[in-house]
Write a protein that binds this DNA or RNA. Structure first.
Lengths: 210, 210, 210, 210
DNA sequence: GATGAATGAGTATTCATTCAT
DNA sequence: CATGAATGAATACTCATTCAT
């Protein structure tokens, strides 16, 4: 199992850029099949032969475009992170009040995790720790945190720069924690949960020194 | 891979109860070796031959006491959950004020996760989802949530029963989220983080309706 | 050992149908090698690695076509039963007199057991009892017994339906018993034996009430 | 698996003769447990640890008396053959007419196979072929065939010596075949079967030249 | 003698990856 | 380029047998 060892040396993400329409369609179907298999069967049931079968493509074709299993997983991760960012950015047009910002953020995050909850958990909990942080993840984290920082910055409570950074991380972690937990228990769409989460985040940002 | 399918039928945790001192030592060394391997190499690198080697024991001895790989993992999980509960309970003697309760809880949770951070993440993120909730986990979760419920109950804000349950879950999820995130980034021992987490939890519990 | 427990649920006989000429040759060589190993080394010496080696094929190739050891054994059994039926049917064009029918049957049965005596014994004595009666066996037994029933029906001695059934079974068992015994002692090709067996069968069918 | 290869060199059947009462009891319980396991679980489920467990004896004790698995199996076989001979000899006091002799023989054979039908089949079909013909088997076969020869000799039909030998073997094989088949289908106690078998044997012995 | 803990060679099976067609 | 047959290192698990206590 290659993923057992962290590989830090830069590998080509793709063996060969798909130039023609047919090639692009093949790659597309492979990534989608991989997404489906990973989501349905979990990491333990994810193997390249199964993915090729599901994609209706020969195993040889899969390896034509992805040098190894890891590259495939990375592509799946990349694609998913892009999807999540896209969903997230849709909630960014919101108002200016802190209350509004928090509401929009939580709404966006919940929507983002609704894309593919099972996949998200597998990718983030199981796959990501094995992958040396890829550019995909770096960009994702950056965009992600920027949003949090913007909110913290919009928060009137006086704090130093360093403190702000920590607050952003705590805010991020607590929102993610609650949403992941809700995803696990299937309560992701509960309005009550959303209200509580917004309340928790807002309280944290505005709560006076205890 | 056995873990790929949820097995709900109760299997015997151990094939044979170790009676003599020597065999108890063997089982002990197997569980410890398993813990070490799982923690160091992750789930993908966890295999019974490696564990037996690490324990300095033959593969046959491992299977004399554990009917299969899954049973070994369960024993490791069991043992870890017991450790965490033990650490957690040490922080329970605390005061009566809500502030004190929250402080003790966060202190205990941070300490609990300091036991074996890497192991904890593998067990909870990767292993647990595959295991049909074992008695070990059930007891653990119960004890866990009881603590949270006690705090929510001690909180003056008026809420219905159902609401209390949700608040307990959100509180639990946010604390876990922050601590796991900190464990990942190695910031688990930061005092600043602890302060922020306590602040967040306390604010959530006492924050007025926005 | 999978064969220790009767498995009644229908499994796919083959994991993948061999399409190309090359793969058909591979499957063929695997089945033949399996036949050879089972015949030469007996059930205890029959293992998939040995079969793959003998076939000059990698172990992976074996499992590409047969989901497990049991399926391979079933294929070998199937093939052998087909061979036996084929040999048996060659003796069916015989005359109309009872004497002729019995002669043809015994001739056919001896020829059938000459195909692969050692294999036949292993398959019937050791393997078959473990396999939940497969379609292959069902068809085989049916064809087998039909032949016996036809003979009993052609026998003038008056008997009820139920009695006929028992006579067919006794006739079948006694012929099989003698032939198996002869196979064990290597006397299968003795003309004297054949004469005696025919005599025994004919006497049984025509003997008056004692 | 030792039984996979025929061992022709004479081994000591027992490592150590049990002298004291306790030792004899231990050996007795081991052989009985082995008989039970072989009969219930079949050859595939027969292993020395299981036998020792069933006997309520440590695996070490088993190997104190039996040098290896094969010796144990041989002892079980020996014991069973003795039992069968004992049952068989009870039917030997019969009358003088051929009809009476045949009746007694069939009665005795059916009774003998009723001792432990499942065990008998496993021992004779699976185990015996692996064992180089032991003294136990030799004596058994001799006694067995003697009975058949006596009957053939009592039969008035004129035949040469060599012919008589073949008749005895065919008679033996056909009776065994029918009884084994009946044991398989659970019809061993059917009176109708017994009558047919006697009829078949008698017809064979008295049938005129066809 | 008796015990049962320990051993390890052996066996079934999977799956990432290659390469001839 | 696409195919899918073939590979084999890796891994879970069994069971006959030994030997220290």
């Amino acid at each position: 199992m290659i993923l057992a060892t962290r590989i830090s040396s830069p590998r080509p993400q793709m063996r060969k850029e798909p130039r023609q329409a047919r090639s692009r369609a093949t790659v597309e179907s492979i990534v989608q099949a991989g997404t489906r298999v990973l989501s349905d069967r979990g990491w333990a049931g994810f193997n390249t032969n199964e993915v090729a079968d599901t994609a209706g493509v020969s195993i040889g074709s899969l390896y034509q475009y992805f040098p190894d299993k890891e590259a495939l997983v990375e592509a799946i991760l990349q694609r998913h992170l892009d999807d999540v960012l896209a969903v997230l950015s849709e909630s960014e047009a919101g108002g200016r009040s802190l209350k509004q910002l928090v509401d929009d953020l939580v709404t966006g995050m919940i929507a983002a995790h609704g894309v593919h909850p099972a996949l998200h958990r597998v990718l983030l909990d199981v796959v990501a720790p094995h992958l040396g942080s890829s550019p995909a993840q770096a960009k994702f984290e950056a965009t992600y945190l920027a949003r949090y920082r913007a909110i913290v910055a919009a928060c009137p409570r006086s704090r130093g720069k360093a403190a702000d950074e920590i607050v952003a991380q705590v805010l991020c972690a607590m929102i993610e924690g609650v949403i992941h937990s809700a995803a696990r228990s299937g309560a992701l769409k509960s309005d009550e949960l959303k209200r509580e989460l917004i309340h928790a985040a807002y309280s944290y940002l505005t709560g006076g020194e205890p």
